[in-house]
Design a binder for these strands. Structure first.
Lengths: 335, 335
DNA sequence: TTGTAGGCGTTATCAA
DNA sequence: TTGATAACGCCTACAA
């Protein structure tokens, strides 16, 4: 890895041109004669020169890095999105810098600050609690892509997955299986996403002429532990239900355990549906019926949108439609 | 967020001192009179000055960033480690830059290159396939912490979790429950870790005077899908086994599904043990007996070691001992 | 203890 | 098309 400090200047010297010419070739920022171009490329090769991003950052204001505010870097949900972001950015020579917001407004604010002070060229924000005004404010400094909310502004692009439709599909599936008493576990309603999913659930009930019963709805927090607790609360209310729709797969996993603890079998006693289609969903017992929203694709879309903005184009997100994935955690109501 | 470009120079001006004095205060690199120190701190506060890491990187050679070569950013296993790293580094003002190696030597090499060219102040490498020589070579440029192998060298610190002991504990637990025919699913043996776990398994068998049966050992790859396939291969061999020890939780999850598909019940027909104690392990059905190695702690330990090295101290890793966590996937052998 | 001056490796602005 | 020259924001001798 003999990484001696090979500078642009050395390259220029060897190629017999000025540093500016080398820089121009590197960035394609101006026309350069073919001969010199080749000489420089040759010199770059023999010297093994790699431009120093730090110096570039100082001089040109570009760091070739994109700040990513994620919520919990270790969550299986965000993990897949980060992977998509990383892969997509890499192709354009950018590196993502991930900072966790921990679903905490202060942490998110700090994350933005950290990234801003690192002079990232752009910012991708995955959901979170922070106020829209703050985001719009940051977007004045660097182009920004926000996933999971609707936000308008210059240098600002946002998109959401159609969670509402996804939730409607899931609920409709249960209805088609004959279920009428369908319980629902929401995520933290601070998320637009969580609200959308709840609305999708209500949409489907309405569609089918079923009156929603508030007793069947439990608030939770998108975690496994939360899902398990939710089941406990639901059962303590002593309302009858034959199906349970959880706003994400992680809560569904927790709920499954909660049901199991009460000797309720999935799907024989309770049909269970999740949301997200994490890899895990294939390996739960029984494998989980869920709504696929390709989190990986969300990541690549966000990255692509970012790259579009950076090159001055108007981004355009085209996410795949949500799809219901029927596995074995749901069944026709026993009667 | 009114992030106007507040430079160190402005601070100096406002405080009525020279830029170097401000720098000295910022870095504690030399004694400064109390009066000036206060004046400067005051100025920093009123101006909301935050030093520019990019400029710092160029001038001082320090970027306050640590490169982290992880394998799959989205894996639940690495995710927790990354979280630990992030939290610990943050306390010292460092930011981790994560790049995925994807268990691919080329990718890992590229990751190292990327990180090196970004002038990270240190490198943390989580396992991987890349050759030791290459790592030792990189360590000549920046201090390095390697997790999951034993490596010696200047500016190089490595530590592993005691996987061998962990695996021995797991296997011994099964033996104590009366199992004699214990199948084992290894991870990719390119990992030292995977080898250690296999050795631990063999240790325990030997301890109990059980002759290991190669037919009971299946090679796999640490993924859920791999665990499921492994069960298939095992069953096709038609060897008798009453317990199955998988080298990690993810494979155990896959194995559980594989068993379920063949109508084998856990733990009644087959006792199942995993390794890692991911959060998931608590929510599998039934909850998984496994070996806890706090991946989060591994992350914080790696970060701490890095920080130690950066401040010139000799790092010292003290990881918690592996602990067997008995849940409900194992039971006394039916007789 | 403090300030001055030079430099870190690029890019950007001007002339030529 | 090319090359000087001046930033970029900070750190670090060196001198005072």
């Amino acid at each position: 890895m003999g990484d001696r400090v090979v500078t642009l200047e050395l390259v220029a010297e060897l190629a017999g041109v000025s540093p500016s010419t080398v820089s121009r070739i590197l960035n394609g920022s101006a026309a350069v004669s073919q001969v010199k171009k080749e000489a420089v490329q040759e010199a770059i090769r023999t010297l093994g020169f790699r431009p120093n991003p730090v110096a570039r950052g100082l001089a040109g204001g570009r760091t070739l890095s994109i700040g990513v505010v994620t919520q919990v870097i270790s969550s299986p949900f965000y993990g897949e999105a980060l992977l998509g972001i990383e892969r997509e950015l890499e192709r354009a020579g950018y590196v993502p810098i991930f900072v966790s917001g921990n679903w905490h407004e202060d942490d998110e604010r700090k994350a933005l600050q950290t990234l801003l002070s690192r002079r990232v060229d752009g910012m991708i924000v995955l959901a979170g609690r922070i106020g829209n005004e703050m985001l719009q404010d940051v977007a004045k400094t660097v182009p920004m892509v926000v996933v999971g909310r609707q936000l308008e502004g210059p240098q600002l692009f946002s998109f959401s997955f159609d969670s509402r439709l996804g939730a409607r599909l899931a609920t409709r599936h249960l209805i088609e299986l004959g279920h009428r008493n369908i319980a629902f576990v929401t995520g933290d309603l601070i998320h637009e996403d969580a609200v959308d999913r709840q609305n999708g659930y209500l949409d489907a009930l309405k569609e089918a002429g079923i009156t929603p019963d508030p007793q069947l709805v439990v608030q939770s927090d998108f975690t496994e532990a939360g899902g398990m607790l939710a089941v406990g609360r639901l059962l303590s209310r002593e309302v009858h239900f034959t199906a349970l729709f959880c706003s994400n797969d992680q809560m569904a996993m927790g709920a499954a355990l909660g049901l199991y603890r009460r000797n309720l079998r999935v799907p024989d006693d309770v049909s269970l549906v999740g949301f997200d289609d994490l890899i895990l969903a294939r390996y739960t017992m029984p494998p989980l019926t869920t709504v696929r929203q390709s989190v990986y694709d969300i990541g690549t879309e966000a990255a692509t949108a970012m790259l579009d903005m950076l090159r001055g184009a108007r981004p355009e997100a085209r996410l795949p439609e949500p799809v219901l994935v029927v596995r074995e955690s749901t069944t026709r109501i026993a009667r």
